[in-house]
Design a binder for these strands. Sequence first.
RNA 1: CGGGGUGUCGUAUACCGGUAGUACGUCUGCUUUGGGAGCAGAUAGACGGAGUUCAAUUCUCCGCACCCCGACCA
Length: 414
Amino acid sequence: MRQSRLFTKTRREAPRDELAKNAQLLIRAGYVHKEMAGVYSYLPLGRRVLENIEKVIRREMDAISGQEIRMATLHPSEPWKQSGGWDNVDVLFKIESRTEKEYALGQSEEEIVTPIAGEYAPSYKDLPLALYQIGQKYRDELRAKSGVLRGREFTMKDMYSFHTSQEDFDAYYEVVKEAYIKIFAECGLVAKVTEASGGSFSEKISYEFMVLTDAGEDTIVYCETCNYCSNVEVTNAKEGDPCPKDGSALKQGIASEVGNVFDLGQKYPKALGFTYKDEEGNDQYPIMGCYGMGITRLMGVVVEALADEKGIVWPESIAPFALHLVNAMPNDSEAVQYADELYDYLTARGTAVLYDDRDVRAGEKFADSDLLGIPNRLVVGKEALAGNSLELVNRATGEVERYTREELFQRYGT
RNA sequence: CGGGGUGUCGUAUACCGGUAGUACGUCUGCUUUGGGAGCAGAUAGACGGAGUUCAAUUCUCCGCACCCCGACCA
């Protein structure tokens, strides 16, 4: 993409009504546009990041036998009344049509997915079954906060699994956990798995995937020598207390929940009438689990966790572009031709390149480049023209490598 | 939902009970061109309503919006 045609522009200053680092940087760099408290639109750059996160998630969910579907977000009220959610889920947005028919906006999809699964899984032979989707969620939060981290509309991956036994569910939970850890690692984050309360959602314990960041809204204690980690809401432990697993002193920190898993038991199958026939021909309710992962929140947490004083720093896997090609001499026709050729060559071979071909000074381009956070910056300048030496700057480390055009084509051209 | 705060050109800010100023942006022209250029000119603004007052962007009240703390958090 030629930056001269990118309709969003960077801003020197953050809007005064955003204090959260993620919102400040995402708005300054033109990734998102705020609509109202807790609701953002995603512009070309932001949309590309979301799409890349989704790609990583799809790959891992597909690898553990998840089948992707796309459920309605405008929900009938009936299943919500059957499950009890209509009166008990306080974040549920309820709407009434002009003919006074009642609807809900999806804030989670148990009420929708359970009847769907039930329709197509009448036999124990159809189980286990895992269905997931990536889509918008709506929650009537009393207070939206922290930029994209807690909104009233957001994008989430939600998966639901159905099993014939608790053992089968427990085993699948472990599989999902590994997939989650992999996804977060690919996004440049270290996620800790904590025990937490199930809230009003489930009587049973739940698991949360937490990333340490001051922008979070949970306090966790964790052990640095083993993998023990817990939300303080269930342990009452604090900094320095002995780890229950290996006895070493616990650390305490603020973290953001980027994923969770709930053991739902048979609540929804019972409420919504999902039974299957077992080997003896008897009706049984499946064990159900759900697995959430906030995609827009994940994007915000990556910004919070990896950004530096100059701007955003994306990991390669989810960056909006792989390369930021910057022509530092836009008024030199030789440089323009050289950069144009690089851009054409690289894009023709599938490299995602943002090409700063704008007629502005180099300093402004570099400042913008730092703010945008594309992992590698390729600079066309005097050296490139004179000695066929291109500067490749790593955004995260600042390290500079020099490539000839031929070497660069080898690295990116295949 | 309780508490606190803030609303001024597109953005960030200043001042003020009496003519709203600056910077960035945008537009025009000239110069400049590897770390957010310079000069000249132009563009564009007081959240809404009520009240006090000769006069309100400024003071008061109500509403709305946004931010922060708390509560809440499928």
